[in-house]
């Protein structure tokens, strides 16, 4: 985690502004998506910049968590050529979106930004103003802080601070008796208000028409109660299984603090043991483990 100390946000920020300016002035991009400073010190929010004059709005600090890749979907049917700044996780999301056929590489410019790990905004809100803010949960476990794909890039590569996957939190839940496990998730999803923020931010949740928006799908009602909410949570975990890039955005944006990544990590752990280790979004060629047919797939139920 020492990277955070030597990492010079300001320098990278300057490079980002210069890059955005160049792209917009040359007309190579019609829009640049980055981050601007939000209303609070621990908030940095997405910003769409169309004019070179506005590039100074762009900032780069330890709160630029939000994954910008998902915005690319909105411009797929326009004439825009959109440039985005992309951290390691954002580039994995970008690869996933390409694989899901939701964006086209030729309409996008990916500007890779090596990331020192973002801070935990939720904790920052709770802590006194000058306290040391810990790293965001997902970032602590990040193994790919550098962009895995890019057209252009700013900054210099950082060294990954985490090399091994840590499933101890999943194992702790697995070790619980079934009733306790159920009670745990029941208590978590009782808090859920079905705001769908987790879905909206998720790069794997990229359907044109989400099943939870279809009133007559028959699978899940619009009722907000523990049962329906759990059904929503489990279904969403199934839908992103094998395609989750572990950016942790879902959990970061959840206003009810449901430990969504815990469920996603359980799926990742199970998929790894059943179908072999898989890291979603590292490239666009490796098929998602649950999304292709192979005659050698295990069929222990047959």
């Amino acid at each position: 985690m020492s990277n955070a100390f030597v990492y010079n946000f300001d320098q990278v920020q300057n490079e980002m502004r210069a890059m955005a300016k160049e792209l917009l002035e040359s007309g190579e991009a019609t829009m640049v998506i980055g981050w601007e400073k939000g209303a609070l010190p621990y908030q940095s929010t997405p910003v769409m910049i169309r004019s070179a004059e506005d590039v100074d709005k762009l900032i780069w600090d330890a709160y630029c968590q939000q994954n910008l890749s998902t915005y690319l979907i909105d411009y797929i049917y326009t004439d825009e050529k959109v440039a985005i700044f992309a951290k390691g996780c954002d580039t994995r999301a970008y690869n996933r979106l390409i694989q899901d056929n939701r964006i086209k590489a030729e309409k996008c410019i990916v500007i890779g930004v090596p990331c020192p790990g973002m801070k935990n905004a939720r904790e920052a809100a709770r802590l006194p103003e000058n306290a040391e803010v810990p790293m965001a949960n997902a970032c602590k476990e990040c193994r790919y802080p550098n962009p895995v794909v890019f057209d252009k890039r700013v900054g210099t590569d950082v060294t990954a601070w985490c090399t091994e996957r840590d499933f101890s939190d999943v194992e702790a839940i697995e070790a619980m008796p079934a009733d306790d496990k159920y009670a745990f998730w029941q208590s978590q999803y009782t808090k859920c208000i079905r705001c769908y923020a987790c879905r909206n931010i998720c790069p794997a949740c990229n359907c044109t028409s989400c099943i939870f928006d279809q009133s007559a799908s028959g699978w899940c009602s619009k009722d907000i109660n523990a049962s329906e909410n759990q059904f929503y949570g489990v279904t969403r975990a199934f839908h992103v299984a094998g395609r989750c890039i572990e950016c942790g955005q879902c959990e970061m944006v959840c206003p009810s603090e449901v430990p969504i990544m815990l469920m996603n990590k359980k799926f990742i752990k199970d998929i790894d043991s059943l179908f072999g280790a898989h890291e979603a979004g590292l490239d666009t060629n490796t098929p998602a483990p649950l999304s292709h047919f192979s005659v050698s797939d295990p069929e222990e139920f047959m």
């Binding site: 899901d100 056929n101 939701r102 990229n206 044109t208 028409s209 999304s291 292709h292």
Partner: peptide, 15 residues
């Protein structure tokens, strides 16, 4: 068609 995102994941999954 109106629900289909064209993600194409059904293509490789079809035996």
């Amino acid at each position: 068609n109106k629900l289909c995102s064209g993600c194409g994941l059904c293509v490789p999954v079809c035996p």
